[in-house]
Every structure is written in structure tokens, then in C-alpha cells.
Computed example of a mutant assay.
Amino acid sequence: MGLTVGLDGFERQTKAIIGRADSRPHLADITIPTLVFVGDSDPITPPYLSEEIVAAVPDSRLVIIEECGHGSTLEQPEAVNRALVTWLKAT
């Protein structure tokens, strides 16, 4: 995926991320059940950041995908699907 995006695309994405507003103060305003996924080896958004999100969002749940980096749906699709089905059945 990174090769497809290329260096110019990566630069644009990085600038967009750096310039976006911090949404953490608004997490408590989320009023729907929320499922947060993170890979156990995600170098971009490590699990402790997802734990921060789950602590702030009411009625949220954290799923840490093992042997996974940043792209959980690409790297571990079966684990993601299992977690989604489990969560949807419980919601």
C-alpha cells in the first residue's frame, strides 16, 4: 500500500495528520457503542494510545490484535472479523 501511495502521497498524508485538530477532548461526547482496534505491534498508534481512547469514550471496547502492526484489516483480517462479529452480537 505504501508503494502504491508513493513518496508524494506519504508526504501529503503526513502533512494532513500533523495539521489536524486534536479530537481527544471530544471523545467523551461519543454516544454510540464503539469498538477500537489496534495491533499489538503498531508503531504508529501503539496500544497505549488506543487504551487512552477507550478510557475516554463511554461504552467502548478495545481489541488488541496479536502479531499485527498498523493495518489490522489487511494484516489479520480473520482476527478482525471474529472480533467484529463477537462485538456486533453483544451490542
Rank of each mutant, 00 (worst) to 15 (best):
L49F: 13
G69P: 09
L35T: 02
P25T: 11
V80F: 02
G39S: 08
E75G: 05
S23Y: 11
P47R: 03
I65S: 04
D29I: 05
G9N: 04
E78D: 15
A16I: 04
E67K: 09
P58T: 08
Q76W: 04
I64K: 13
G6K: 02
H70K: 00
I65P: 08
L74F: 14
I18S: 07
I32N: 04
I18W: 11
L62S: 06
F37C: 02
D22I: 10
E11L: 15
L74A: 14
P25C: 08
T31V: 08
E51C: 09
T73F: 14
V54D: 03
D42C: 05
L35P: 06
P77F: 03
D59V: 05
A90F: 07
P58D: 09
T86W: 06
T34K: 02
L84Y: 07
I44W: 05
E51F: 07
A55W: 05
H70R: 01
C68Y: 08
E51A: 12
F37W: 01
P46K: 10
A28S: 11
E11M: 14
L35K: 02
A79Y: 10
Q13R: 00
R61V: 00
P47H: 09
I64D: 09
V54L: 02
L35G: 02
A56L: 13
T4I: 14
I64H: 10
D8Y: 12
I65A: 08
G9P: 00
H70Y: 01
F37L: 04
T86P: 09
R20H: 10
W87D: 07
R20W: 11
P58L: 01
G19K: 12
R82F: 13
A79Q: 15
I44V: 15
F10P: 00
L88Q: 05
S23L: 15
E78F: 15
R61W: 05
V80C: 01
S60D: 04
M1H: 14
W87Y: 14
I17Y: 13
F37K: 01
E11A: 14
T4D: 12
E66G: 13
Y48W: 09
I18T: 10
C68Q: 10
I44F: 10
T45G: 11
